[in-house]
Amino acid sequence: MPVYEWDFAFVLNYRGVLWEGFLGTLKIGFSSLGLGIVIGLLLALMRLSRLWVVRAPAIAIIEFFRATPVLVLLFWCYYALPIIIGVAFDAYTAAIITLGFQTGAFMAEVYRAGIVSIDRSQWEGGKALGMSLRQLMTRIILPQAIRRMVPPFLERSFELMKTTTQASVITYGELLYKALLLSAQLYRPLEIFTLVAVFYFVMLTIASFAVRYIEHRIDAARL
C-alpha cells in the first residue's frame, strides 16, 4: 500500500485564499445570525399572540424552515426564487436570507421556550401587584427567561457557523468553497480539508470555552 506524503508547506503557501474563505464564513455567519435574531424575535412574539391569525402564519413559517433541509432552501432561494419574484440575488444575499430565516425559525423556539418556561406563579405574582402585560414582560418574565435562553441560543449559533459551509453549493466564497477551489487547483485535497477541519475545530472550541465562561457567570449571578 503506497504511503501518502503529506505536504502542508506547499498548501500553506496559499493560506491567503483559505483566510479569505474564513473571513467569508465569519461574514455570512454573523449576518445570518443577526438576521436570525431579529426574525426569531418577531416570530416568537407572533407565536405567543392570543390572536390565531397572527399566531398561525408564525407557526407555519417556523415549521416550514425547521422541516426543510438548508441545502434545498439554498438552491431554491438562489435559483427558483429569482424566477418567481423577478429579482436575482447574489450568492451572499441568497445565503443570508436562507440561513437567516432558518436560524430565525429555531431562535423563535428558543425565545418562546424561554418565556413559557417561566412558571405561571411569576406571572401571577406580578399581575397581583397590578402590573400591565408590558411591565410583567420587561420586569419579571424576560429578565428570568433570557438567562435560560442563553445556552440554547449559543448552541444554535454554533450550529449556524457549521451550516454556513452549505453556502458553498451556491458558490458563496466561504471557507469550504475556497477549499474546494484550491484543491481543484493544487490536487492536495487531504491537506486542504484537514486544514479546513482544524480551522472549524479551533474556532468553535474557542467559542465553546467562551460560552462556558458566560454560562458560569450567569449561574454565579443567580446565587
Binding site: 406563579s121 401571577e124 405574582g125 399581575k127 397581583a128 401587584l129 397590578g130 400591565s132 429578565p143
Partner: peptide, 19 residues
C-alpha cells in the same frame, strides 16, 4: 390592572421574584 393595585394577594407558593 388598576383594581389589582388596591387588592393585595399573597399566594401559597410565595411567588417572589427570584432575580
Amino acid at each position: 390592572v388598576g383594581l389589582r393595585t388596591h387588592v393585595g394577594m399573597v399566594f401559597q407558593q410565595f411567588n417572589l421574584f427570584p432575580h
